[in-house]
Amino acid sequence: MTLTLTVPPGAKVRVRITNENGETTEIEVEPGETVTITLPAGSTVRVEVEVVDPDGRKRTETFTLKP
């Protein structure tokens, strides 16, 4: 399973991925970048995406991906 994120110009994104064992991976994606994350097959993962807009506003979306 893959997750692809494209960050709009001016925004910053931090992604936290937590697996079933509670292990967390965190990455930051710079403005204008596209990143593809390969998620472990057969695992349920929690993905938290934090977006910081150019004006400093933050918003966070959290979702769970199941196999």
Rank of each mutant, 00 (worst) to 15 (best):
M1N: 06
M1G: 11
M1F: 13
M1R: 03
M1E: 05
T2A: 06
T2S: 05
T2M: 10
T2D: 05
T2R: 05
L3R: 03
L3C: 13
L3Q: 03
L3W: 11
L3T: 05
T4P: 06
T4G: 08
T4W: 14
T4S: 08
T4V: 10
T4R: 04
L5R: 04
L5E: 02
L5Y: 03
L5N: 02
L5V: 11
L5I: 07
L5P: 01
T6A: 12
T6R: 06
T6G: 12
T6F: 14
T6C: 15
T6D: 14
T6N: 10
T6Q: 10
V7G: 01
V7D: 02
V7I: 04
V7Q: 02
V7A: 00
P8N: 11
P8L: 12
P8Y: 14
P9Q: 07
P9A: 11
P9V: 07
P9I: 07
G10S: 08
G10L: 09
G10I: 03
G10A: 12
G10C: 13
A11D: 03
A11F: 02
A11T: 03
A11Q: 01
A11G: 10
K12N: 09
K12W: 03
K12A: 08
K12Q: 10
K12S: 11
V13H: 00
R14E: 14
R14F: 09
R14Q: 10
R14N: 11
R14H: 06
R14M: 09
R14C: 09
R14V: 11
R14A: 13
R14P: 02
V15L: 09
V15A: 05
V15S: 02
R16P: 01
R16L: 05
R16Y: 04
R16E: 05
R16H: 04
R16M: 04
I17D: 03
I17R: 10
I17C: 12
I17N: 12
I17L: 10
T18V: 14
T18P: 08
T18D: 11
T18H: 07
T18Y: 08
N19L: 08
N19R: 07
N19W: 11
N19V: 14
N19A: 10
E20L: 07
E20K: 04
E20G: 07
N21P: 11
N21G: 10
N21F: 07
N21Q: 09
N21V: 07
G22R: 08
G22S: 10
G22T: 12
E23Y: 08
E23G: 09
E23N: 09
E23S: 06
T24R: 08
T24F: 10
T24H: 08
T24E: 06
T25N: 04
T25S: 05
T25Y: 10
T25G: 04
T25V: 13
T25A: 05
E26M: 04
E26Y: 03
E26G: 06
I27G: 12
I27A: 12
I27R: 11
I27K: 07
I27T: 05
I27C: 09
E28M: 04
E28R: 07
E28Q: 11
E28S: 08
V29Y: 10
V29M: 12
V29N: 14
V29K: 06
V29L: 12
V29P: 13
V29E: 12
V29I: 07
V29Q: 13
E30D: 11
E30T: 10
E30H: 11
E30W: 06
E30M: 05
E30A: 06
P31N: 11
P31A: 05
G32N: 10
G32F: 13
E33F: 09
E33W: 11
E33V: 13
E33P: 10
E33L: 09
T34H: 10
T34K: 10
V35W: 11
V35K: 08
V35A: 05
V35H: 14
V35N: 07
V35S: 08
V35E: 03
T36V: 11
T36A: 07
T36E: 13
T36H: 09
T36M: 10
I37P: 03
I37S: 13
I37A: 14
I37R: 15
I37V: 08
T38Q: 07
T38L: 11
T38P: 07
L39D: 04
L39P: 05
L39N: 08
L39E: 08
L39I: 05
P40M: 13
P40Q: 12
P40C: 15
P40Y: 13
A41N: 08
A41K: 08
A41Y: 13
A41R: 09
A41H: 09
G42N: 11
G42R: 12
G42P: 07
G42H: 11
G42Q: 09
G42D: 11
G42E: 12
G42L: 09
S43F: 09
T44Y: 08
T44F: 11
V45D: 02
V45K: 02
V45W: 10
V45T: 07
V45Y: 12
R46H: 06
R46T: 08
R46P: 01
R46L: 12
V47F: 02
V47Y: 00
V47R: 00
V47Q: 00
V47W: 00
V47C: 02
V47M: 03
V47N: 00
E48P: 00
E48D: 04
V49E: 00
E50F: 01
E50L: 01
E50T: 12
E50D: 09
E50Y: 01
E50W: 01
V51I: 09
V51L: 02
V51P: 00
V51N: 01
V51D: 01
V52K: 02
V52F: 02
V52M: 05
V52N: 02
D53Q: 04
D53I: 00
D53V: 00
D53R: 01
D53E: 04
D53N: 01
P54Q: 08
P54H: 04
P54Y: 03
P54M: 05
P54R: 08
D55I: 00
D55P: 00
D55L: 02
D55E: 02
G56D: 00
G56L: 00
G56R: 00
G56F: 00
R57C: 10
R57W: 01
R57H: 04
R57F: 04
R57T: 09
K58R: 06
K58T: 09
K58Q: 01
K58G: 00
K58F: 01
K58H: 02
K58W: 01
R59F: 11
R59C: 14
R59M: 02
R59S: 03
R59Y: 13
T60W: 12
T60P: 00
T60D: 00
T60Q: 01
E61R: 08
E61P: 03
E61Y: 15
E61I: 15
E61Q: 08
E61T: 15
E61L: 15
E61M: 15
E61H: 14
T62V: 13
T62G: 05
T62S: 11
T62F: 05
T62N: 02
T62M: 03
F63A: 15
F63M: 10
F63N: 15
F63K: 15
T64A: 01
T64Q: 03
T64R: 00
T64E: 15
L65W: 15
L65A: 00
L65D: 11
L65Y: 14
K66Q: 14
K66R: 03
K66T: 15
K66C: 15
P67W: 15
P67L: 15
P67C: 15
P67G: 11
